[in-house]
Design a protein around this nucleic acid. Structure first.
Lengths: 207, 207, 207, 207
DNA sequence: TATGAATGAGAGTTCATTCAT
DNA sequence: CATGAATGAACTCTCATTCAT
């Protein structure tokens, strides 16, 4: 269960680090940040306690690294979708599919992330935490921002009715996230995405 | 700061209990379940630590009681709205306003609730926790169910286009919750509710 | 083994705190700061681990409190000796006796203090440590300063031969400390003090 | 920075060992025994962690080896001074100069040694530690013993007033150590030594 | 020989919970 | 009822030491 990619180098390069990240993914997803213990992670990762601290400075940074690693390819995909040479409505469909797939796959972990985000760096915490929180914030801003951008583009070309793009983007995002969290999305993410976009595009009222 | 209603009994009856609940509301909302300490609650409540355990069996049950107390009048309101003798679309508007107001007021606490819900009673936890989790689940089910019910009613009377009511109800709920969480709702909840319903009713695509 | 004074209030007032301080005195004296564990302290103090942290914010501050408690009456004694209305040479004898008694009684702990002093607050440590270190430094400065002051006084009145009072005071202090550390001082501190002063007097007194 | 002497063998023989000892000297002097980590030593020594354990069985023995290596030439010097064919008072001057120079140069490390000495082999520690502690004790005994021996010799030849040679030797030693620790000794160790001896001589020399 | 990834015993600290007053 | 001193299970993190390469 290498979440991002298998190391192409040697068979064992970074193997322990990989095992720890994979185990952390499982436990954080299942239990949330606070209920997760290092002991449980190492039991699954089959490593010693100290090994965790060879690779990550602390539990928070392990969590942070994990989410960074997962989000990076996703953000690249988003970027590509937004700058693609296609119709705004098609871009929107593509974005929704991407986001829906991402949150369907990593919903449990991301739910935790979205919750803990608020806690990090709030009090007299280390500044590393404050940094993390900022990075997390900008992650969500970028995701929603990409929707917003395409909405704006659609309004400019006239295919989308003028509206508050900020609020609408947030609305679309929240519906997508909800669908993923509620496990409404089965095998076919594309079909589910279609339902979301249809609802938003055309509304629910009979005309 | 009695959140729900003042005890109708005597001036002092349950006063300590009230103080604890009010303090718990503040701290849980601000810090989440795990970061909240009993010490912080009693500091604000101006009570002793033992007093908390006179009224509540443990931290979880204090949290549970708090959320129950807040949700009950809200659920009564929902019930009344659904069974009212009005048009489905008006009912829907009324529901959206109610839910939006509720989450605007208690969003911080409810965000915590929605997160911790998943943790309660997951492992070898006490069965009291499992009970709580079930009650929490049914709370959300009832809220969303009320939307669903009105959608079904609207489809039956023909004012709403046939759709998957379960998914659509969840969608509407998630948009409402998002707007509240994101603090997009200012003074005028009614106006904000209007925007949500408009979007859902008529979609975003220019026709 | 209440080191400073028994609480005059109630039989049990501060009893646990007292037990912890007494136990800490024993273990710190025997093992030094780092080799001392909280577990060992509570085993002797017959308390729970958490109790220690009810009274002291951490191990360092426990150590600090302990040394403060012990040094305060001593410093008061020094002050009284310096400002007494007696001959400089008698003052010096009195000072030497006081210091010798103190270091004979608390030599093991003070040896630890003198060593750890250098470590506290050196790196990225909490500022509480830096504060402590400063207090510790000033403690030694005051002790040696009191000797210095009397030397200066003696030089002014002509009974002591002009000399570098700073160095001489340090010298006297170190000999006293050494005698105490080496357990050369038996029952009769006064007699031992006499030996120290005699040696120094015949070197520094005008003839 | 070969502290004692360069290996006379080949350019590279023991080079790693040398680097480790030199680095250990720096860190132990600065931080004391417990606060020193192997990681910090190897960072300065530019070696791997395992290499340390190729040359030294553990941290304690590394410390021990370091101090042994430094003390040996010093002890040889002392021996030579004591058995030299000179006047007792000149011998004493020579001894004081030697000791003062040594503690001025290696004061920081020796301060650590003098502190940790008591901790080694106290409890259920390995017998290697107990051995070390004994060797450390005998080191100080030899240093002070050399002073004592010359004092006795001086008393026999009548140039020194009869006194408790054990206590006096300790006294002289402690003043010397103090001067070094307090960094009172500048460039000219000889001059500083003179001050010490003068003070003592005028107290202990027959007139 | 040199290395450094892996390890786990052990330490300090937190905090929900209990119970005697 | 109200209290808060006492408690210890649980948790994060450190670091000396090992050992396969």
């Amino acid at each position: 269960m290498a979440l991002v990619r298998d190391s192409a180098h040697s068979e064992n390069f970074g193997s322990k680090r990989r095992q720890i990240l994979d185990a952390a993914y499982i436990v954080f997803s299942r239990k949330g940040f606070h209920r997760t213990t290092i002991d449980e992670i190492i039991a699954i990762a089959d490593t010693g306690k100290g090994t965790v601290y060879n690779y990550f400075v602390n539990k928070e940074q392990l969590f942070y690294t994990l989410t960074q690693e997962i989000s990076q390819p996703f953000e690249a995909d988003l970027e590509r979708a937004v700058t693609a040479d296609t119709e705004p409505l098609d871009k929107l469909r593509r974005l929704v599919t991407l986001i829906l797939s991402f949150y369907t796959k990593h919903g449990d972990l991301w739910r935790v992330l979205m919750h803990e985000m608020r806690g990090f760096g709030n009090d007299g915490y280390s500044h590393i935490s404050a940094e993390m929180r900022d990075k997390y914030h900008s992650f969500f801003k970028r995701t929603i921002g990409s929707i917003e951008q395409v909405l704006t583009e659609g309004i400019a070309t006239g295919v989308i009715r003028p509206c508050d793009t900020v609020v609408t983007a947030h609305g679309m995002f929240s519906v997508i996230a909800m669908m993923a969290f509620q496990k409404y999305v089965g095998e076919d993410a594309e079909a589910a995405a279609e339902r979301v976009t249809e609802t938003f595009f055309y509304g629910i009222v009979n005309k």
